[in-house]
Design a protein around this nucleic acid. Structure first.
Lengths: 369, 369
DNA sequence: TCCAAAACTGGAAGCGCTTCCAGATTTAGA
DNA sequence: TCTAAATCTGGAAGCGCTTCCAGTTTTGGA
């Protein structure tokens, strides 16, 4: 039977002693078991018995531990194969105190924000790296209070072995929660107010310099900038890169407007700049979204790009190719960001002390500058 | 170039063979433990002792089970509060045979594909729904052979309680793996060759009809279509919707070209259509990406949209607003897709028998038609 | 006041695996 | 051939929680 939305009865746990099936949901009574009862998997004991050895011997074989004779190993391996045995993950986790799961935490006040391709790219990178290990990825989008509570619970109950945190805003209450958990944590992008022990970040300052220097090289002298939130490390860093490049070039900043990394804010900022500095001949926007907005505003104002005003963006996550004109921008490899973060976390979990990493950026020339 | 930042000094307990940290990775020797040793969490026994009751009583309190006197409950709750106790997730999972984790499986042959905003939206929806429960989300991007093996392992070792599967292609080997696992599975989007017991899908046929009917209503009569892969349920369904609408309108299809849901393939298909049916006056593209490509090709061919050729897309995931002209398209609520899938899985896990769901679509009028 | 029924309680047996340890077996050196 | 060292082995004790069960206490009706 198929029903269109609206008709379905969405009661989850109704009154009465429904067990709900979830540990910790907390109801009473004899629970309903899972609708689909999986056939029982063979246990280590069964393997051991079949192989005619003790459970410990079997365990040693499985874990590749020493002190196993050739004969024992063979017998156990045979039994494993015959039974199609796979060690139970949970039992193993309980015994070893390690879950084999790491989490990527993405705080966000607005679910839409997660739709930014940035996150998808990080996830792709993380996941590509983890695929080479035995670790699995738990994705934790923590927004609401409830979301944070869930995360706290996850960490305190030792539900994961390690954390990758995308620290977005300045004062993320999550950092505290995470700190308190004592779990190894790798930051994807640096937070605003401190430098974590382990992080991987793009070279935002360097990238912004690259962009600005490019504009200088084109002979532009009245170069404005549209920044991202300055309450963001990336926002600050890109702004810094711009200023440094300007100073080195012996130029004075020619207009600054703060956006919030969105296209609309970019358009708005551009309008403000055109207002305050009508003679500007170039603008460095701290993200492609901002730049796209700026392009729109410039078009509306009748300025041609790049003839009248050259524009450079930052990110190169796809939008840059679709603007009109296509955007000259600073490319950062977000997948690598994720990949390196995962690699770093794996190293930490293995007891190593990896160094934090700053990934290079590069200029991609297209039509807008 | 990768710049490493400083050397962080943090005490580490070195020496001895590295354990690798991962269960199942299989090394020998006395391992180093985790770099960061978390302070031990209090156990249920400690709670029970402090409360002066038995462990079972304490457990009952925590699980809200019946047969607990007011006094016992109070004592235990007090102890819990004082100790800051949180039940250990793994231990509980072992005892209850439920992990409290569900997985969203996204098969993909190309990591880039995952960057499609579609997935992000599904994740946002899933995650929003799960936030209301005690369940966590494990994201499984299974591509390579290794990825599939990992998934198999995850399922066979009972690492998750349930599955949400985005069945993309026709003959996904994963369906087999998943079937075999016996775990409750909800499909996000229907697979090509069979109708699963539990799925949630958008009304692709209806949406395509909406789109085509709109073109008919505009007075267009030579309406072509650019389909997605016909080896895809969505591709097939949208094509079907188009044909149905045409039949109802008493019109004959006026050109069909198959794309693969990408912008480039859309452009290519459009060129082919212009070639074979130069007199077409409208086109229904089975996705916004396809439509965006079509718009490009039309512009290149000097046809004006919508004057010469009206274009309608499908999806409405952001791109539609940014094309030139903005795309009239069929809106599907992908977040809801995720949300409903999660809700359905939760219901199944709770022992219910939810009905599958087909979510409505609606036409969004913009500039292209 | 008494007694059966209802409500509560803690002991104990798991869940499936790892790992310590003491004893048994090999191995190799003399 | 004998013995110390090296290697292997299985028993047993966890990991931290749930849950069955039998015994104990309360309750309430007569």
């Amino acid at each position: 039977m198929v029903v269109t939305i609206g008709t379905i009865d969405r009661r989850l746990r109704q009154d009465g002693p429904t067990r709900g099936g979830r540990p910790g949901v907390g109801q009473e009574g004899p629970g309903i078991k899972m609708a689909v009862s999986p056939r029982r998997q063979p246990t280590l004991d069964e393997v051991a018995e079949r192989a005619g050895v003790s459970r410990s011997a079997a365990s040693r074989v499985i874990n590749n531990a020493p002190h196993v004779s050739r004969a024992t190993r063979n017998a156990v391996e045979k039994a494993i194969k015959e039974l199609g045995y796979q060690p139970n993950r949970t039992a193993r986790a309980l015994a070893t105190q390690q879950t084999g799961i790491v989490t990527l935490v993405v705080p966000h006040d607005n679910p839409e924000l997660f739709a930014d391709p940035f996150f998808a790219q990080v996830i792709v990178g993380v996941s590509a790296m983890l695929e080479e290990t035995e670790l699995h990825l738990l994705l934790c989008l923590a927004s609401s209070h409830r979301g944070r509570a869930r995360l706290t619970n996850l960490l305190r109950t030792r539900g994961v072995d390690g954390i990758m945190l995308m620290a977005l805003h300045g004062d993320e209450p999550l950092t505290d929660i995470i700190d308190r958990s004592g779990l190894p944590t790798v930051h994807v992008g640096r937070p605003l107010h401190f430098e974590p022990q382990w992080f991987v970040d793009s070279d935002n300052v360097g990238g912004a310099r690259l962009a600005t220097e490019h504009l200088v090289r084109l002979g532009r002298t009245r170069i404005a900038t549209i920044t991202g939130q300055l309450a963001t490390e990336a926002g600050k860093a890109r702004y810094r890169g711009y200023r440094e490049a300007m100073i080195i070039a012996g130029l004075a900043p020619h207009g600054t407007a703060e956006g919030d990394f969105t296209e609309n804010s970019g358009a708005e900022a551009m309008r403000a700049l055109l207002d305050s500095h009508p003679d500007l001949d170039a603008v460095f926007a701290a993200s492609d979204n901002l730049a796209a907005g700026a392009l729109r505003a410039l078009a509306e104002a009748g300025r041609s790009v790049p003839a009248d005003v050259a524009v450079v963006g930052f990110d190169d996550l796809g939008i840059a190719e679709r603007t009109d004109p296509p955007l000259t921008t600073v490319h950062q490899s977000v997948q690598d960001l994720g990949k390196e973060a995962a690699r770093m976390l794996v190293a930490v979990l293995a007891g190593q002390q990896p160094s934090s990493i700053i990934l290079p950026t590069r200029l991609v020339r297209r039509g807008s500058a």
